[in-house]
Design a binder for these strands. Structure first.
Lengths: 160, 160
DNA sequence: TTCGATGCAAATAGTTTGCATTCTA
DNA sequence: TAGAATGCAAACTATTTGCATCGAA
């Protein structure tokens, strides 16, 4: 899960071009490795390793969970894959597309709001001015309470 | 680790007043439970459960790790304790003082910058205006690159 | 034909839980 | 003395690793 040297993100069009890139880097394209890519291309959202190993619950052949983890790490080093953590729970893996999504996670209802990085640029700028800190919300999200839950909470407080 | 109903934060002056509060809530103050409190009062920073169970490496009697976890959960429900997660790695537990600290975590060097909530109020306001989202950085930190590492990275890029 | 990758199983880290026993209120 | 909390062990989730074998280039 923890990648030593995650390379710069690479957006591949499809499994074949991803496979070609692997070979360019001197890596082999085995059946198990191709399968991880196929699953990631099939579901365009972040998934846990277990779900990949299950072949999306049967839509693809099952594969060994240990190998899935190893391949995800390799793919992340190459830059084809990124992983993120949404609160507690397992890491989630997805194809790296050019500009990574960023996330707002509600702790009350577990809702995840996906936003494009530009929407957080002002927040990022503010943090940079204040602390010289370059914030990223693509690997770990912003955590708190979403609008719905906040409204609900204050309603309950007014009328218990 | 995951607390069902974390009560409102309560700041206790010392172990005895914390113990008194426990009894007020109808909870018992056993030796093991008092020990958790003593360790938390002795070290004023967030610590992992394992470190509590070890009695801060021998300064206090060792206790059972399972019971430590159970007691931390109970203490968190009462509001005396809060836990946080700094990136990967185990959860960290600390006494709840009135206004919880918030955190900036650097992914390159693992440095943790502790800030008082007021320093992030503009960030919070911005997020609330944009998304109606109430962000907290006390349970999960803001993750990114600290000023030092950012400087180092751009220096390396200029002079490789 | 080589050595990178696999599959299986065992190991690890962090945390939770069942249960007979202990001890607080 | 009732039942809350303990201590120990086992279970569990997420992830990593050792190793003999296999297969892609």
């Amino acid at each position: 899960m923890t990648v030593a040297h995650p390379g710069p993100a690479v957006a591949a069009r499809d499994v074949e071009s991803a496979a070609a890139l692997m070979r360019e880097r001197g890596l082999r394209v085995s059946a198990a490795r191709r399968l991880v890519l196929e699953v990631l291309f099939a579901t365009r959202e972040p998934v846990r390793a277990e779900r990949i190993a299950s072949g999306l619950e049967g839509r693809f052949p099952r594969s060994d969970l240990g190998s899935v983890y190893r391949n995800l790490e390799t793919l992340e080093q190459v830059g084809l894959v990124r992983h993120l953590h949404l609160g507690h729970g397992p890491g989630l893996y997805a194809l790296a597309d050019g500009r990574p999504s960023e996330y707002l996670l509600c702790e009350s209802c577990d809702a995840v709001r996906v936003v494009v990085p530009a929407q957080l640029d002002r927040v990022r700028r503010l943090l940079h001015e204040r602390f010289g800190f370059e914030a990223r919300f693509s690997h770990f999200p912003i955590v708190g309470t979403c609008a719905d839950c906040a409204r609900r909470a204050s309603a309950e407080q007014a009328d218990p």
